[in-house]
């Protein structure tokens, strides 16, 4: 198996190599208004980047992947289209993207080990596992007006009663696409492609302006 696919740990040692998140340039260029900074009152929408997570695309049959995932990660594939499974401590998730495609998000330093173990479990099954960690980033959105910011941005129905916790979809966001999901009551997650991240960031600042949008800095910088 291992010689039929090039399994490759392309993650560098973050202790010696400077890593830049997809939004690093945007923070520098467009700024990061701290929550409450813009208007002096509480921000009704807050965003922040969760950088350097491990993003793996899984392709294959649901049954074999589900089995391998339960074995290796302790969580199974979500049973329904457009849904999401999150592990107990909220650090690992798997989301339905299409009938034969799922997105696995884990702490960044677990990525290669996970791929290796999954491949070992999957043996000769016809699957594909692709590391796309550096190709996209995760933006968290919270606050009482979060869904209004989304209503200004996406055609998908984001009413909190309709877009319930555990749902996740690929849809349009302004003039680009986004993976939008709701892992818990308080947060939305937007997974955006790296090259579009700056556009999405600027759009979010603009759409959130009327709600006094703020940006939180990630303190676990490069730690994972």
């Amino acid at each position: 198996m291992s010689n039929t696919v090039h399994v490759y740990d392309a993650r560098a040692d973050h202790a010696t190599v400077t890593a830049e998140s997809p939004l690093a340039y945007s923070f520098q260029r467009s700024g990061m208004p701290a929550p409450g900074e813009a208007s002096g009152e509480e921000s009704r929408a807050v965003i922040g980047e969760r950088a350097f997570l491990g993003h793996l695309i899984l392709r294959g049959g649901a049954i074999v992947l589900d089995e391998a995932l339960r074995e290796v990660l302790g969580i199974g594939l979500p049973g329904r289209p457009n849904s999401l499974t999150v592990d107990a401590d909220g650090q690992r998730s798997v989301q339905w993207l299409s009938p034969d495609e799922w997105l696995l998000i884990v702490p960044g330093d677990e990525t290669f080990g996970l791929e290796t173990r999954l491949r070992a479990h999957l043996g000769g099954s016809h699957v594909a596992i692709v590391d796309v960690s550096a190709g996209q980033t995760l933006i968290e959105l919270s606050g009482e007006a979060a869904h209004e910011v989304l209503m200004k941005s996406t055609v998908y129905d984001v009413d909190p009663h309709a877009f319930t916790v555990g749902k996740g979809v690929t849809t349009l966001f302004a003039k680009t696409s986004v993976i939008l999901r709701r892992p818990d009551e308080s947060r939305w997650e937007l997974i955006v492609r790296r090259s579009f991240a700056d556009y999405v960031y600027r759009w979010l600042l603009d759409a959130g302006a009327e709600y006094g949008i703020g940006v939180v800095r990630e303190d676990r910088h490069e730690s994972q």
């Binding site: 329904r80 289209p81 457009n82 299409s98 009938p99 055609v155 998908y156 979809v169 849809t171 349009l172």
Partner: peptide
């Protein structure tokens, strides 16, 4: 496949 209605723009 998604088993729901979606907007034409998608």
């Amino acid at each position: 496949y998604c088993e729901e209605h979606r907007e034409e723009e998608e």
